[in-house]
């Protein structure tokens, strides 16, 4: 369905003295039809850039993106525009996702007008249908974006995306700017709609609880690379990479008596601007509590610790193979 093969993105600036920073350094994954891949990682690890490259808002520097077997990266502009409606994106900040001078009605009608799907009165009918699909009132159509709450706007964003009956939706931290209770509502809606319309989803998040609840598979990104990837259960049940373990240790558990499965790892803090090209070896070496000589010399290859599970670490075998006694309950409050 969606296959991403070794995509890279280098941002450059300046005309006389070119400076460049490699934000995404070779990311590969695949998502099967109707499934959800959770892309998690800290701020600045390149997960949003990956999402934007999939919907072709950013041109990848290298690599291939295959959608239903069609290579998006080498498509001529006309064919790309035909394919665009099939691949949609939901943004992190719902306040900025709508033209502030348009009423919700106009924003929701935009996909129909742009793609000449329907015209005239029929647009109004479809817009009404959409607004009800996402659980809002037709009265909201006459409001301006600033008159709606973040949760309501994110619902409208979902409606606008659904207008084109996409096969793939990239959800770029759709709930990170919302209150926790509203988060749950929006996520439930997203899941419900996915069941109903059968779209594939790339769910970008820095919140592991949310990603776990949403995704069939999880890919953990660190500094522009995927360090661990596998089924949600195996990532949460038996994480292999020290970074994944540290992330899991940072999850807040609502029960103070429960204790933690993973202790909070004290990682050395390193500024993300550290020049990566200079340092060879594993990109996590300077923060990793288990780093050894080999980690500084050689980049870790992808190893397969268990079926359908990949990890990029030299030392995952030496780490304590803790079998987590995770209850499996996800709690939003």
């Amino acid at each position: 369905m969606l296959e991403v093969v070794g995509i890279k993105k280098v941002f450059t600036s300046g005309i006389f003295r070119r400076r460049s920073i490699e934000v995404v350094r070779g990311v590969s994954f695949r998502v099967n039809k109707g499934q959800t891949l959770g892309l998690v990682g800290e701020s600045g690890c390149g997960k949003t850039t990956v999402g934007k490259m999939i919907v072709r808002l950013i041109e990848p520097t290298a690599g291939r993106i295959l959608f239903n077997g069609i290579e998006l990266t080498r498509l001529d502009p006309r064919k790309l525009r035909k394919l665009r409606p099939k691949i949609q994106i939901i943004f992190q900040d719902p306040d900025m996702a709508f033209n502030p001078r348009w009423k919700i009605r106009d924003s929701l009608g935009e996909p129909f007008k742009l793609n000449r799907l329907v015209r005239g009165r029929e647009i109004i009918d479809r817009v009404l249908e959409l607004i009800e699909t996402v659980g809002l009132h037709p009265e909201h159509l006459n409001r301006y974006p600033f008159e709606l709450s973040g949760g309501q706007l994110q619902r409208v964003a979902l409606a606008r995306v659904l207008a084109l009956q996409p096969e793939l939706i990239v959800a770029d931290e759709p709930t990170s700017s919302l209150d926790v209770s509203v988060q749950a509502q929006v996520l439930t809606l997203l899941k419900e709609l996915q069941r109903r319309f059968q779209f594939t989803c790339v769910f970008i998040s820095h919140d592991l609880n949310v990603a776990r609840w949403m995704s069939d598979r999880i890919a953990v990104m660190y500094r522009g690379k995927i360090v661990e990837e596998g089924k949600t259960e195996s990532i949460f049940g038996s994480p292999c990479h020290p970074y994944t373990r540290a992330l899991l240790g940072a999850i807040l558990v609502p029960d103070p008596e429960a204790g933690r499965t993973w202790r909070i790892a004290s990682l050395n803090h390193v500024s993300p601007e550290v020049n990566l090209e200079k340092a060879g070896g594993c990109s996590f070496q300077d923060r990793c509590p288990h780093a050894e000589k080999i980690c500084r010399e050689k980049e870790p290859p992808l190893a397969v610790p268990a079926p359908d599970h990949r990890v990029a670490c030299h030392r995952f075998k030496d780490l304590v193979p803790v079998q987590a006694n995770v209850t499996g309950k996800v709690c939003f409050l």
Binding site: K52, V55, L57, R81, R84, P85, I87, Q88, I89, F91, Q92, D93, P94, M96, A97, F98, N99, P100, R101, S107, E110, P111, L114, N115, A157, R160, L164
Partner: peptide, 26 residues
């Protein structure tokens, strides 16, 4: 840089459409 420009692009808007309908009015 705001989301609605990216959204309009993903929805199939051309550069000219985005400049005339979204950027200039704002």
């Amino acid at each position: 840089e705001q989301g609605f420009i990216g959204a309009a692009k993903a929805l199939g808007g051309s550069n000219m459409y985005i400049i005339m309908r979204h950027i200039i009015p704002n």
